[in-house]
Amino acid sequence: MTRKSINKADNVAITTNSLMPRTQMPLRTLMISMTVMCYLASLAIGALLLITRAVDDWTSEISGEVTVQVRPTNDAKMNDKLAQAASILKATRGVTSVDILDKNAGNKLLEPWLGNAEILNQLPVPRLIAVAIDQKNPPDFEILAKKLSETIKGASLDTHRRWQTELTRMGSNLVWLGIGILALITVSAIALVIFASRSALDVNREVVEVLHFVGASDKYIARQVQWQFLRAGLQSGLIGTIAGLATFFLLGISSSVTSSNGLAAASYSLLIGTPDVTFSSYLLFLLVPILTTLICLIAARLAILRILGNAI
């Protein structure tokens, strides 16, 4: 960067060139690598958000409903048992609705595993009662399960806890995996900046020596270099993050947002959904250029001070 002003009286232009020649800095390579890392970090953050929200939605759906299973037995008619179970459920505090699934609906759930519904009609398939519960004020499932099993032979309560636990565990593992990837990207970025700082000093060794001889302190020299790294970090962070956001945006608009509940719809809602969702998404994405800039600034400064500190 060169600033220039001309005093007409003396006709001498006063230039203020950067003391560290920008053209000799290994910034282009650093910027390319950092941009790729920021892009990957943005993808990782987006994936983390998608996973977290999906797991939240699934567990919320599951925990809002329990199922009562009534197995056929010889001692009573199935319809009587179902009616009895329904009346117990309706009388239970915390149950908001009770829906006895007809036999065909139950068979349809088994179809993918056991084949067509005709055969299922001949088998002693249990009947299901879908029970919606008030999540804020849920019933005591232990007491309810005991009451059902004691009152109705062959009745059992499935709270879906096992699935919920599995889902939560899977979601948690994926989140930790994402955080691990982000940590690795951060460590690589720091290593890259340190390497680039060393290269910057190597390339400009003569400049550094002269600056030392004219009385520049290590901090002064570090300042000459760190601002160039800061600018490179900010540019890389912005480009990488915008590219990451563009990827999710393209993914979101790549299929119909109204008809699909898959990755595309989730990506769409991540960026163009309700304000409370998009605000937190953008806030997290914004962290990428901010952290990249800070990493470039701090890692470069510390690396340079350490290297210069080892001189005489």
Partner: peptide, 11 residues
């Protein structure tokens, strides 16, 4: 001499 080539004589 050790002059810095990217700076002017004045600088």
């Amino acid at each position: 001499f050790r002059l810095l080539d990217h700076l002017t004589v004045f600088e």
